[in-house]
Simulated assay, not measured.
Amino acid sequence: MTPADLAAHYLTDVRERMRGVKRLGDGALAQLPEGGWHTPLGPDGNSAAVLVQHLSGNMHSRWGALRHGYRTGAEGEHPGRNRDAEFEDAGRTEAELRVHWEAGWAVFLAALDHLEPDDLTRNLTIRGETHTVVQAVQRQMAHYSGHVYQLVLLAKTLRGTDWQTLSIPRGGSAAFNAERMGAGGRGPQGVPEAEHDPGLTRSR
């Protein structure tokens, strides 16, 4: 595999995995009970509303300049961003918060989709600190995944016994493995695994 092939493979994998992370977040948000959007787990915790505000604000700031492709001199901290306000519950409705959620992910995923393999070693800055594009992508993959798993924990705790798992259910690993490894390892009914369950819809 050439370096160019490896870079293209990396971008394909990142796009698929981060769409999977979004689906995981979608599944968690869909199970929040009534009033759950604004309920933290503790006095210093973040509610789902706050996490959505922060993710959306970060995604717009970090990736807005690259939404239509790499741009020389891009800065990942938009001067108009008010990060501190993202951590204050603004009392938005569920509908408003879903708009923020979708809009933030749209910016981030569009930026990933427009990156080319050669862009990965080019530079951008975040708060004036120089990063290669691949470093910025890795940094935000970890950041966004962490907050989405916070959303999962929050929604699961608030939902209680009514929670519907987004992963392999307890006691279901053997059946899941048998299903996946059946039909010559191509998943159920011979469907390739990537088509059957792309990304991170199920945690391993």
Rank of each mutant, 00 (worst) to 15 (best):
R127V: 10
Y144G: 01
A111L: 07
R127A: 14
R17V: 05
R186A: 12
P188G: 09
H114V: 04
T130V: 15
H68F: 02
P40G: 06
A110S: 15
H9K: 03
A30M: 01
W101H: 09
P188I: 10
A4E: 14
Y70W: 07
R23D: 01
T201M: 14
D13N: 05
E77D: 15
L151H: 06
M181L: 12
A111K: 04
A30Y: 00
H78Y: 13
F176L: 11
S145E: 05
E88L: 15
R204N: 13
T125A: 13
A85W: 12
A49V: 02
G104A: 07
E94D: 13
W163F: 11
G184K: 05
Q140L: 04
L66T: 03
R186D: 10
Q189N: 14
V99H: 11
V50L: 04
R81C: 11
P198A: 13
M1H: 07
H114G: 04
T132L: 09
A85S: 15
R23M: 07
S203F: 14
V52N: 01
E116D: 14
A95I: 05
E94S: 09
S173N: 08
P79Y: 15
A106I: 08
E34T: 08
P79T: 14
L11Q: 02
A74G: 08
P117V: 10
R62M: 04
F176E: 06
L6K: 09
E86V: 10
H78C: 11
A103H: 11
P79W: 14
D84Y: 12
H143R: 01
A49N: 01
E94N: 10
A95G: 04
G187I: 03
A95W: 04
W163T: 08
H78R: 15
G20I: 00
N82K: 15
